[in-house]
Simulated assay, not measured.
Amino acid sequence: MTGQLAGRTIFITGSGGVLGSTYVRRMLDQGARVVATDLPGHRAEALQAAHAGNAAFRFYDLDVGDEAQVTEIFKRVLADGWEPNVVLNNAAITGEMLMGAGKPFPDFADTSVADFERTLRTNLTGAFMVARQMDRDIVGRWPATLINVASMYALNGAHHPIYDGMPFKNFSAYGVTKAGIHGLTVWLAGYWAPRGATVNTIAPGAVFNNHSEEFQRRVGELIMMGRMAKPDEIADAMLFLCSAGAGYMTGQLVNVDGGFSAW
């Protein structure tokens, strides 16, 4: 099969979400072999059902916050005959996910240490553990690429008034961890360069996911292009970063935010 990603084997954490599932679909369409991972549950089941029978797709259960699972994941993948040369640190907890667990959205003063540290464990420590295992099992064996997924809020403060009256807010731990993700990128970029590996960060902007018209309006006023992104528009940039065309890029933060960060 020919395509932008022909010959690439891509390993993705957090594959069942809006962006993760879009990445999987688009990467398969572009000729990649895709090793998808996520927590067990309906998102994982839907992803597996969508690609059942596709020989270029493989799924593994993975909690990136569980050190024992991360330590074994690449060994399992390699033993099954898949050799990832691109790894995406995409798994993340958002405030909306915490609410989905039946919790009310807390004000900052009421944010629990447990919720903050749970987010840190998945979004940042989990990304570190995946990268560490990549160092042990992949880097230096063949040319490799790591892409860390940050956010428009990685290096920009949240605009808190847009959340007034909404059922969700911007969660402090999310922005903190997404800023840390790029710190991991620039550290690893220099560390791995002598071993033929590149590391970059992609910072998606506000992605439409059944948001209300009022929230879309508020966010759109902060964005040069005046609207939220479609998942496929983020995937377009991700496909390039996964491709051979990005081979001379490392240590970079790529904003895909419709101009949000430029204002």
Rank of each mutant, 00 (worst) to 15 (best):
M1I: 12
L5R: 09
A6N: 11
I12W: 01
T13I: 07
G14I: 12
V18P: 06
L19Q: 09
T22E: 15
R25C: 08
M27D: 06
L28P: 13
L28E: 06
L39D: 06
L39N: 04
P40I: 08
E45F: 00
A50L: 04
A50M: 04
A55T: 13
F57D: 11
R58Q: 12
R58T: 14
L62R: 03
G65Q: 04
D66P: 10
D66T: 08
V70Y: 01
T71A: 15
I73F: 03
G81H: 03
E83I: 12
N90T: 10
A91L: 01
A92M: 07
I93T: 13
L98H: 12
D107W: 01
A109T: 14
A114S: 13
D115A: 06
E117N: 15
R118T: 14
R118S: 15
L120P: 10
L120W: 13
T122I: 15
N123Y: 00
L124E: 06
L124N: 04
T125Q: 08
G126C: 05
A127N: 05
M129N: 13
V130W: 02
D137V: 09
W142L: 12
P143D: 08
L146W: 03
V149P: 04
M152C: 11
A154F: 01
G157S: 13
H159R: 10
I162A: 06
M166P: 04
H182W: 07
G183I: 05
L184R: 00
L188A: 15
G190Q: 13
Y191S: 14
A193G: 13
N200Y: 00
N200G: 05
P204H: 03
A206Y: 11
V207D: 08
S212F: 02
P231N: 07
P231H: 03
D232H: 06
M238P: 10
G245N: 09
Y248H: 11
T250M: 02
F260N: 07
S261R: 01
A262T: 13
